[in-house]
Amino acid sequence: MKKELICIRCPIGCRLSAEWKGDFEELNISGNRCPRGAEYAKQELRDPRRIVTAVVPCNSVLQPCIPVRTDRELPKHLIDRLLNILYRSRVEIPVRKGDIFIENFENSNANVIFSSTITR
């Protein structure tokens, strides 16, 4: 099998080429200018993940919603499920930046945390 990828680990955006046999055996990555490119390709082929950011409605007098993020990359197939839950939630303030909103979402090891402090 063969697949072309573009690395997203830094702004350069190396064009990677991955070749493998069967279930990602003898996986060979080329085109990367640094080791992070190979790491990215291996992860992206087997189990693509992304940081997810969104806003959740809250009861602050200052702003109608509060920004949240996952504290690590979430498997791509879980993203829509997480967003659905977030958009149906409501946050009670006060909250502090870094506080956990949802712990270990679907056993992904990723928590959803607040990106902003809102106290009133």
């Binding site: 573009i6 997203i8 830094c10 702004p11 955006g13």
Partner: peptide, 8 residues
């Protein structure tokens, strides 16, 4: 924009 933004 940046290539990585095209991708992601």
């Amino acid at each position: 924009g940046l290539t990585r933004n095209i991708v992601q």
